[in-house]
Nucleic acid binder design. Structure first.
Lengths: 120, 120
DNA sequence: ATAGTAATAGGAATTATTACTATTTATAAA
DNA sequence: TTTATAAATAGTAATAATTCCTATTACTAT
């Protein structure tokens, strides 16, 4: 992968927020530095960074969100404010359980919990 | 809720498959009965049926899928064939744990597991 | 049966994402 | 340094997924 200042910027934006931003949010933020950056560049680089294991993609309803946290983890999503919080809920045990019960070879486990967060 | 033959048809389509179909799949199937049915009608009724607790919505990457199974459950998704299988993995305990650890009032918990299923 | 009205339908519009192409740029070899 | 070249970019068009808008229709009370 060749260097590009656009990719560096995009990576930096994702890695310095806990907001699980959407492509559009990242696009707006990136434009402040590179005013003619294209939305296609945002999407291309985000999926490239994801493929290289540098960032994670999570799906919030029908929108992709991007997460600097590449360690397998779980999410709490608040129905009131929409905030998404990273948590650790699942253990290695779960993977074994899935294998024993269903002969399913799990490579990723994600627990998504919706409800009301502690700010309300 | 007023009767409509479109909604009856849509409900019936969802309730007679285990394929976790997308809106588009349901649309194509529905057109065989009501040829001028609109995709908007599909979406509107699917979310209405969901709100009334008659069907469930699950999110597979950035696509909504619809499930007749309204009891809280979890999913195995095979990376090879794309098949989604309903399983039961989470327990009431998890909800309590989320409350104790994060003071988060969970109303829905869903464990999504990807990997290779027992057909491969 | 008819009129009133709120729910529903179909189709248009919007939003999110991907694809395409001409141009620019990072990198490596001469 | 210059040159070759493959990868990346901006800009735009296309596609996919979902929501919005206005005419129509099911249902209720007369």
């Amino acid at each position: 992968m060749r260097f590009s200042k656009q990719r560096e910027l995009i990576k930096n934006i994702v890695q310095t927020t806990n907001l699980h931003p959407t492509a559009d949010w990242i696009y707006k933020k990136a434009k402040k530095n590179i005013s003619n950056i294209s939305l296609g560049t945002i999407y291309r680089n985000l999926s490239q960074l994801n493929q290289d294991g540098i960032i994670n993609i999570i799906y919030d309803n029908n929108k992709a969100r991007y997460d600097w946290n590449t360690v397998s983890h779980d999410h709490l999503k608040c129905n009131k404010c929409g905030d998404i919080t990273d948590i650790h809920m699942h253990t290695e045990e779960l993977q074994k359980k899935v294998w024993n019960q269903y002969k399913f070879e799990a490579d990723n486990i994600e627990i998504n919990i919706t409800g009301i967060c502690n700010k309300h």
